[in-house]
Amino acid sequence: MLLELQGLSVSFRTSRGQVEVVSGLSFGIPRGSFFGLAGESGCGKSLTALAIMGLLPEGARASGRVLFEGTDLLSLPPAEMRCLRGKELAMVFQEPMTSLNPVLRVGYQVMEALLAHRPLSKAEAQQRAVELLRAVRLPSPELRLREYPHQLSGGMRQRVMLAMAIACGPKLLLADEPTTALDVTIEAQILELIDSLRRQRQMAVLLISHDLATLAEWADTIGVMYAGRLMELGPAGELFSRPLHPYTRGLLESLPRAGQPLRPIPGMVPPPWRLPEGCKFSDRCPFAQQACRRQEPELQALRPAHAARCIRAEELFL
């Protein structure tokens, strides 16, 4: 396992006391694999990525273990984490415009990513930057190096972000909704690019998205989060075609399909300080029973490599 989360929790100190927003998350990402993390806003998927990167905001506390090649990243001193970040683990974010510095040329920013972890001469760095931009299929890379971010389209900016992320050959790329700000036709291009970089460079990918259909296309394994918990974890194709958790099923039925009635999940995600007792989805679940509200179910394996946090999954969906 390249990355293994063991009971990762993230909490914030607020006026309501300590509030847990990610709770006991455990899953593993093998070397070179493609893991998809799904969930709606506020489910804790972005904080999970930030916790792995050691980039949690002020006031957030992570507990549990984040094992990267056997080393617990949470107990690593900040200086050592800084050496790993960018070199071994890299991340791209949703909005490429806010991630790039608007007053610096693209070339400078890509070279900065290169020079942060290894000494290179300016000419070498420039040559490497051109190679990187070519690797992310940015047209005419020599010219682009001298441009500013605002001169590029959204898709091109995300390519530049990817070039910076892969600059030092990371073993794990975290991508948090990298295509949400892009058009559909460009979205497909960026996802295909991420997947081909993964294959060429044996780099594992953790893709975070609210769109299960997109994850099912690219990921090997998908985890579905709700209220800070992993509700279902399984092989992408199977999870998409035969989901085991009512929440996953609800998400899939929320996608409009021709000639089929829409069956939205009723209600909305409660705030983390007002979660129901027992199963955290029980207040919105059409299948909830007394027992569901009494005790929170464990994530249990029901098919090979496919687990769900639901006491009724077996009787309902198997």
Binding site: S153, G155, T185, E187, G237, S241
Partner: peptide, 25 residues
């Protein structure tokens, strides 16, 4: 045709087509 082909597929195991070119200004 390109728009329809590049929408995420709702059939498991099928990947959408990857269209060429950027959205022009």
């Amino acid at each position: 045709q390109m728009l329809l082909a590049s929408a995420p597929s709702l059939e498991p195991g099928r990947r959408r087509a990857v269209p060429k070119g950027d959205v022009p200004s």
